[in-house]
Structures are given as structure tokens and as C-alpha cells.
């Protein structure tokens, strides 16, 4: 089972003792502020977790995989995530089957 916003709101409700509506709204604005910063061209650095960076990609040649027709992939800005040392170390220790 994947972690979702509902799980996160539930945990805030349980651990912080804020009400369910506030917990839900906090989860919502947490992700919205990160999106907003990235949309405004700002890098987001969350120490212990990782950094969300922006990369500007030039136009490059592409191909429609179905028809084989050549179509350029336009220049674009994309978000990349670089996990921090702490998160990398914690995930590195995982020995099971990942989802």
C-alpha cells in the first residue's frame, strides 16, 4: 500500500492533536507551497529529506514510438529530486522487495 495524503493527515491528527480538517488542510498547503516555489523557479531544499531542483532542457529530436515519425521534443523546464544523505542512507539499508 502506498502512502497517501489521507495517511499523512491521519498521522498529523494523531500525533499533533490538531483537528482532522486542519490536518487535511496542512497536508494540502504543504505540497501546494512546494509546487508554488518550483513554479516560481525556486529550488526547494528540505534538509534530511532531499532537494527539488529545476533543470532547463533544450529542444531535442524525438520520435513517435508508434509511428516512428520524427517530432522535436520542445525546450522545457523539469523538476528533479536529489535525495539527501540521510534519506539515501535509510533507503540503502532496506533489504526487502520494494513496491
Amino acid at each position: 500500500m502506498a502512502l497517501t495524503k489521507a495517511d499523512m493527515a491521519e498521522r498529523l491528527f494523531e500525533e499533533l492533536g490538531i483537528n482532522k480538517r486542519e490536518a487535511k488542510e496542512l497536508v494540502e498547503i504543504f505540497f501546494e507551497e512546494i509546487r508554488g516555489a518550483l513554479e516560481g523557479g525556486q529550488q526547494v531544499k528540505l534538509s534530511g529529506f532531499g532537494n527539488f531542483d529545476l533543470r532547463d532542457k533544450n529542444q531535442r529530436p524525438g520520435r513517435n514510438p508508434k509511428t516512428g515519425q520524427e517530432i522535436p521534443i520542445t525546450a522545457r523546464r523539469v523538476v528533479t529530486f536529489r535525495p539527501g544523505q540521510k534519506l539515501k542512507a535509510r533507503v540503502d539499508a532496506f533489504k526487502g522487495e520494494a513496491q
Partner: peptide
């Protein structure tokens, strides 16, 4: 709340569990 959210997300990944946030 911010610290708890990031901790829960890290825990999930450390346990091999995916995180799915629609629109994010």
C-alpha cells in the same frame, strides 16, 4: 507538522513503500 510529514515520507521509503500524491 512539516517535520512529521517529512519523517513519515522518509519512513515509508525506508520500508520500501511508495508515496503517491496526486498532482504533485
Amino acid at each position: 507538522a512539516v517535520k512529521t510529514l517529512l519523517e513519515q515520507m522518509s519512513e515509508s521509503l525506508a520500508n520500501g513503500e511508495r508515496i503517491e500524491i496526486r498532482g504533485f
